[in-house]
Simulated assay, not measured.
Amino acid sequence: MASGTRKVFTRPLGGDGFQVPALTVGSWYTWDRTPFEQTVDVIRTAVDAGAAFFDVGVYRADPRDVGSHTDVIFGRAVQAAGVARDDYVLQVKSWVERSGGAEDIVAQFDRAVFRIGTDHAEIVVFGDLVGEHVPYEVIAEGAAALVESGRVRHWAVNNWSVAEIRAVAAAAERTGLVPPAFAQLKYNVVRRSIAEGEPFRGVVADLGLKVQASDALEGGFLLGHPRRRPTGNDPGGIHGLLEEARPRLRALAEELGGTLAQLALAYVLTNDDLCSIVVGARTTEQITDDLGAFDLLARVGADRLRELLAPYWLDKGRVDPESSWSSVPDDDPVKYALILPDA
């Protein structure tokens, strides 16, 4: 894709004039499930379209395994794609362990960027809070250390509740650190209760927080794809409703001259509080399809899309808008459940 076909617009992040592409490529176990040459082409296609924004982390599906090499593969693939480090935005996931201090948070970040092949990232995203996590003050101190050292420009959180976000923002303020720039949330055309709920809207107003949408296609389930890897659970139990709604959504997409993936992503792009959508595109066809969401949005318009898709808020009344994945009680078996791949 030639640079003249750039189509991905940018959104502001933080109060320092920083802009990020509205499409982020990466997420959980993306780069280790496809041929290397294909990964290189996906990265190059995304960058040429203006989506030079990548989400990378050190992942382990099971604490007993040695972990995925998806981050290492990304580091080599972005080099092979001919993309210089200064020419893309990198966000790195950092997991908040149950013990350890700010030094451990910095050390974990350093390990992550070392595996990628760099020494810094524009954004660090602190992962899900599980059980007795380290105190908010420690997380804020770790974030402050990374920002002050120049390792990162902004910090963010992943799947935190409104109360948790406010608590860590207050701790950050006491250290002289600005609030988190965004919250990465499970958010898509059928799953809106948290990202579009009034509690989160209040945090946006008070802290200038943005939302970054993850699971925008429900791990492919929204499109009806068979599951070939562990994916996130199903808060609110809406997958049965989605099965029923999928034919109508697909027909609407075709009526608008697009695909179901494009319609789903275009809806999320209508949210003015959004900074970007994370997609796990693994093939050139997938990333090209995802990029078409920007054309669909431009053609149909945000107001019309929101009107047409209003009936498809499937988790409304099923998910507490003040909650997060981490707020599920520790003794609830759903908390750690993953939707396993289809046989």
Rank of each mutant, 00 (worst) to 15 (best):
V25R: 07
E196F: 06
F126G: 06
G197W: 05
L209T: 09
G237D: 09
G240E: 04
Q91S: 15
W160H: 14
G82H: 04
L222G: 05
A144V: 05
L242F: 09
V147G: 08
E132L: 14
S193R: 02
E307R: 11
E196L: 13
D206G: 01
G208P: 08
F126Y: 12
R248P: 08
E173P: 07
V204L: 02
L308F: 01
G75P: 10
V124M: 08
D234H: 08
L242Q: 14
S3D: 10
D234A: 00
T231M: 00
Y136P: 12
S326F: 11
G301W: 03
Y29S: 06
E141S: 15
A80C: 06
L177Q: 12
E322R: 13
R246Y: 07
V130D: 15
T118F: 00
G131W: 13
W28N: 05
V78R: 00
G127D: 15
G176V: 03
E218H: 06
G57H: 12
S276T: 10
N158M: 07
L269Q: 10
G15I: 07
L314I: 10
T283L: 02
G17V: 14
P35C: 08
V278A: 03
N271Y: 13
E103Q: 15
G101R: 14
P226A: 02
D320Q: 10
G220P: 08
T270C: 07
L207H: 08
H225N: 03
A337R: 05
D41W: 05
Q108V: 04
G131R: 15
V8T: 13
E122T: 13
D55R: 11
L296F: 07
G131A: 14
R229T: 00
Y336P: 04
E141I: 07
L90D: 01
T288V: 07
L249Y: 04
L13H: 06
T283N: 06
P199Q: 03
Q38P: 12
Y267I: 04
E243Q: 13
F54Y: 12
L23I: 12
P35Q: 11
S161N: 10
D342L: 03
A216E: 00
G50A: 10
L217T: 02
R98S: 15
V125T: 15
V162A: 11
K93E: 05
V40I: 11
P235M: 03
I194A: 02
D110W: 02
P321C: 02
L217H: 01
A107D: 03
R85S: 01
A167I: 12
F221K: 10
R250A: 14
L296P: 13
F182W: 02
G176L: 02
G82S: 05
Q79C: 02
P199A: 00
F200H: 09
G317V: 12
R111N: 11
P230T: 01
